[in-house]
């Protein structure tokens, strides 16, 4: 399944796609609190058909981390 990661993030965090890049995360996006973070993971899990581990959830600090995990799992990122 191919989906655009940035679109999903933008949608959940209610920001413009242009406002986010690989370095974006809870530090740079105001809406990205722990609750929104969990909603994002839930959304990514259903869109990319993957399951994150607890450690992955705790260690994702920026978009780049998500990309790395997804690519390790073989999810196809439509970029």
């Amino acid at each position: 399944m191919s989906s655009n990661l940035l679109d999903i993030v933008a949608n959940v965090m209610e920001v413009q796609v242009s406002q986010i890049d690989d370095e974006s995360g809870p530090e740079t996006i105001e809406n990205w609190d722990s609750f929104r973070g969990l909603i994002l993971f839930e959304e990514l899990e259903s869109k990319f058909n993957v399951k994150f581990t607890l450690n992955e959830l705790l260690n994702i600090k920026k978009i780049k981390d998500i990309k790395n995990i997804l690519s390790v799992r073989g999810a196809s990122l439509n970029e």
Partner: peptide, 15 residues
């Protein structure tokens, strides 16, 4: 969802 429970004391998972 144990992860959500452990991370945020969520006992009805977001789904």
């Amino acid at each position: 969802d144990y992860r959500q429970f452990l991370v945020g004391d969520i006992k009805v998972s977001l789904s």
